[in-house]
Design a protein around this nucleic acid. Structure first.
Lengths: 147, 147
DNA sequence: CTAATTTCTAAAGTTAACTTGAGATCAAGG
DNA sequence: CCTTGATCTCAAGTTAACTTTAGAAATTAG
């Protein structure tokens, strides 16, 4: 009982599905210990790791990138203040970039609303200069977030 | 030659892959005519439809929703000024909502950067009030954009 | 007219982020 | 001790948005 949290406990605490937590493990996001019966045992710090993942996901970060960030953190301890400051600052930068991109789009759109867009040449929305055609199969990155 | 654009022409004009254009057809986004040999023939308006799709996608709209918007437009004609105003206005609303959500997140993050987030209870980022666990399989909607 | 492109269709593969299912084992309550 | 209920593993399914592949037919270039 004092040996740590079960995966069910963690699920209850974070709101994540048990299957999702196991899935995250295969992606290196959590690395629980095992008890004698082979069941996963989590520590308190894992709640934070998972909460961090959830927060990052609402920001639109792909799991792979989140996992990268987490590599820099101690495996079974909560992140230190320095760790957290580093991470949250880098988040801040990305959010700023997204807001800027959206604001830019909004301006273009404002210019378009009245014009009827009968001119393909002059319409900024119809001529985005930054459409980088992603290569290969799979879902497209909708938000152009990477980088 | 004067009978319309081939799918290759359209691909060159829009920057979309030929396969993507065919794919869009199965989703009701374009509905080209056929020539005697069974090859697709597109009109000028289709360039706009596809450009519209690309613009909407950079805004993060899922294809299904874009297709919905396009249902309201004449099939083989360019959208009228009224059509376009309706659509672009509804875009504007969604962009505003996204900017607001991101700005809110940024504020929360600002409050977090210095705090070291040692308190799960008080950290806004760790306790997002609006995490709605999407049901079922498939990729998650990263941006919380729908609705 | 022939060779090289394009296009056609239909089916299967890809990626992300998980879920679902099957069969077996572990743990906890009465 | 026995019966639920929780976990375990591993494989396969799901969704979105496309791509890739294969074999055949149409178009275009020379």
């Amino acid at each position: 009982m004092a040996t740590g949290l079960s995966i069910g406990d963690l699920s209850a605490r974070t709101g994540l599905a048990v299957s999702a937590i196991r899935f995250y493990e295969t992606h290196g996001i959590v690395a629980p210990l095992r008890n004698d019966g082979g069941h996963r045992r989590y520590g308190r710090a894992d709640i934070r790791r998972l909460s961090f993942v959830m927060a990052a996901q609402t920001l639109g970060f792909p799991l792979a990138e989140i996992a990268e960030h987490l590599k820099g953190l101690p495996a079974h301890k909560a992140p230190s203040k320095a760790d957290w400051t580093r991470i949250s600052t880098s988040f801040r930068v990305k959010i700023d970039a997204r807001i800027a991109a959206l604001t830019d789009l909004r301006e273009k759109l404002d210019g378009c609303i009245g014009c009827g867009c009968l001119s393909l040449q002059s319409c900024a929305l119809y001529n985005p200069q930054d459409v980088k055609g992603s290569e290969g199969a799979g879902p497209r990155n909708l938000t152009g977030l990477d980088g």
